[in-house]
Design a protein around this nucleic acid. Structure first.
Lengths: 158, 158
DNA sequence: GTCGGTGCAAATGCTTTGCATTGAT
DNA sequence: ATCAATGCAAAGCATTTGCACCGAC
């Protein structure tokens, strides 16, 4: 049920074709770079990693392609606490999609959580939906943050 | 275990005091307005609803207070597909925190999902965390979007 | 040959900040 | 009284867009 790391490239081409859009080398490069990113990334880090590989494209193209990938259901935006930029992640084909975030420190712990997948499939099926992914984020206070907290009553920010 | 719609105002005051910050009428107004918003909202709609109530504050204060509320764990940002602005929601004390989003149409369906709460509590306890909330978002394709899709092979936006 | 894509640079618009004034403690 | 908050207007800055040239189909 959890979709395999499918030929994303094929998925993308099919999507583009369905919209009569073109599959260009720039778009291929962006997709390849996305697949090489581990977990979360943003437009800027993506571009930097592309440049490191000698695949330079314009910032505008990165944004434009990222949007297409999002429309194609290949990546999804991910809300990071306090982030000023949009973060993305592969929509499926790779774990995790589940996180525990400390609201005090911003600490982010990836979770491996089959139950979330099961839950999502069950709920979706129940309503006749097809799923492409999910996100399960638990907000809380980590033990570390709590003890730190009792020591000094103050807050902090990156 | 799921935190009650506690005296959020008291929570806020306590938080402010702990940082030696002041509890002003503007901040009180913003908090009140936040509690009156149903579900998701953004800075701008919050301000407009405040103005409708005759509680005018500057945009800067809205943003500043929203950040404090976030630091205090009272609201959390919420990532909406394709949103250009930050959306917020009460971090706890009110349902739902679970959604199903159509990646084709943007359709957003709130879910009532106890299992998600149970799952979150179980996972958190397991790691010694205290939770303040969670977010469970299922990305998928709604039946409506799918049929629309097969009719016209095109994509759409907002 | 078409029509969409790309890069560049300029524009957009949410969000943040500096500063002088006002107000909570 | 003190020290932080507010409002205003001026940045900041990620993201989007217009346009002229290039390239996939």
């Amino acid at each position: 049920m959890p979709p395999i790391l499918a030929p994303l490239c094929a998925v993308f081409r099919r999507y583009l074709k369905s919209c009569s859009l073109r599959y260009t080398s720039e778009r291929a490069d962006v997709l390849a770079a996305v697949m090489d990113m581990d977990d979360l990334f943003d437009a800027d880090s993506l571009l930097m990693s592309m440049r490191a590989e000698g695949k330079d494209v314009s910032k505008a193209t990165v944004y434009r392609t990222l949007r297409l990938l999002q429309d194609a259901g290949i990546v999804t935006p991910f809300m990071l606490l306090d982030a000023k930029v949009t973060h993305y992640q592969l929509a499926y084909g790779r774990d995790p999609s589940d996180y525990m975030v400390c609201v005090q420190t911003g600490e982010l712990i990836p979770l491996q959580c089959d139950e979330a997948v099961q839950l999502r499939e069950r709920l979706a099926a129940q309503m006749g939906w097809t799923t492409v992914g999910h996100r399960f984020v638990i907000y809380g206070v980590s033990p570390a943050a709590r003890s730190e907290d009792s020591r000094s009553g103050s807050s902090q920010r990156t």
